[in-house]
């Protein structure tokens, strides 16, 4: 096999060292395998008890032995989608500003700020979202929003601080760095001759971005957005603190909800037996969802390198 090729040549110590290095590479594979194995093993009780029906049932009431995962899956997907709806355009906008407009100095400072935004611990976002953002939304954002859109089911009902709406906004802020950083790298990789080509035709900066840069980088930007989506789906602590943890197929964004991750984190300390196994089954579902989203994103980003470079055909 290929990976032994490098091991054959040279001194014995070289072979030993290469072997050791290989073991550590193997370790990564083992961890991945271990994660899948444990999720499968620890959720076996719940899987045998509930079967596939757990995915389609939204009834969750451990006291009455009702275990449905649908409301958690729903909560996860809806909050993640809302978050990316907000963070996607803004993140790409930040990237566009950094690559197309910002002078060198501002670029470095703002890039650093975006990095710091990513470094703030999830739980601190939760605390801030609950005590600072939620009251702010309640007083200044929700009343005008309901004034205009209150008639739609999406924005109906009374706004209690901890809601799907608040959680989605906090999630959006949390995934903003991911979207912005990946899109920035993608936009930066667009060859300068593409911009020059459009500018030389008498295009404005916006037209150059819209007609030459963005189409060229589209796959990568899409990948950045999907990566952000995956991050939002797996985010735990902030959501646990803010979303209200009420397993429900909500229609209003001002309702409370629960996600797969928030349910695991919130209920774990009190759980045992079937309930514990069910929580780990939720973890398995979350794992599958985020892995699919991530693989999807990486495949899309990889496509970028296949875009013809606009130069002489090889």
């Amino acid at each position: 096999m290929g990976f032994f090729k490098g091991l054959r040549r040279g001194h014995t110590t070289d072979t030993v060292f290469a072997g050791v290095a290989l073991l550590f590479g193997l370790f990564i594979v083992l961890i991945m395998g271990g994660i899948i194995y444990q999720l499968w093993l620890q959720s076996s009780v719940a899987r045998q008890e509930f079967g596939w029906g757990v995915l389609t049932s939204s009834e969750y009431n451990p006291g009455a032995e009702e275990y449905g995962a649908l409301s958690f899956i729903y909560g996860t997907l809806v909050t993640a989608a809302l978050a990316i709806l907000i963070a996607g355009p803004i993140g790409v906008g930040i990237a566009a500003y950094l690559v197309e407009i910002a002078p060198e100095r501002v670029n470095r400072v703002l890039g650093f700020i975006v990095e710091l935004l990513a470094a703030v611990p999830s739980i601190v976002y939760g605390l801030w979202g609950f005590f600072a953002l939620a009251p702010f939304l309640r007083d200044y954002v929700v009343p005008p929003l309901q004034g205009v859109l209150g008639w739609t089911p999406l924005f109906s009902g009374t706004f209690f601080g901890a809601t799907v709406f608040t959680a989605s906004i906090v999630l959006a802020i949390m995934i903003l760095p991911t979207v912005a950083a990946v899109s920035r790298d993608v936009l930066r990789a667009v060859p300068r001759d593409q911009r020059e080509g459009m500018l030389a035709l008498g295009a404005t900066r916006w037209e150059t971005f819209q007609r030459a840069v963005l189409p060229y980088a589209m796959n990568g930007v899409l990948g950045a957005v999907i990566l952000g989506l995956g991050r939002a789906a797996g985010e735990t602590m902030a959501v646990t603190f803010i979303i209200g943890n009420k397993p429900e197929l909500f229609t209003s964004l001002f309702a409370q909800g629960a996600t797969l991750a928030s349910q695991i984190a919130g209920q774990f300390p009190e759980a045992g037996g079937v309930t514990l196994s069910f929580l780990i089954l939720l973890g398995l579902i979350l794992f599958v969802i985020t892995i699919l989203i991530n693989i999807c994103a990486r495949l899309v980003v990889r496509l970028v390198s296949r875009v013809p470079k606009g130069g002489v055909r090889a």
Binding site: L39, Q42, G234, E235, T236, I264, I280, L286, N294
Partner: peptide, 16 residues
Amino acid sequence: TMTGIPSIVVGIFAFG
């Protein structure tokens, strides 16, 4: 791919 796995899932692994 591992960098994209939610930390709580890694927690479940360590728990198990």
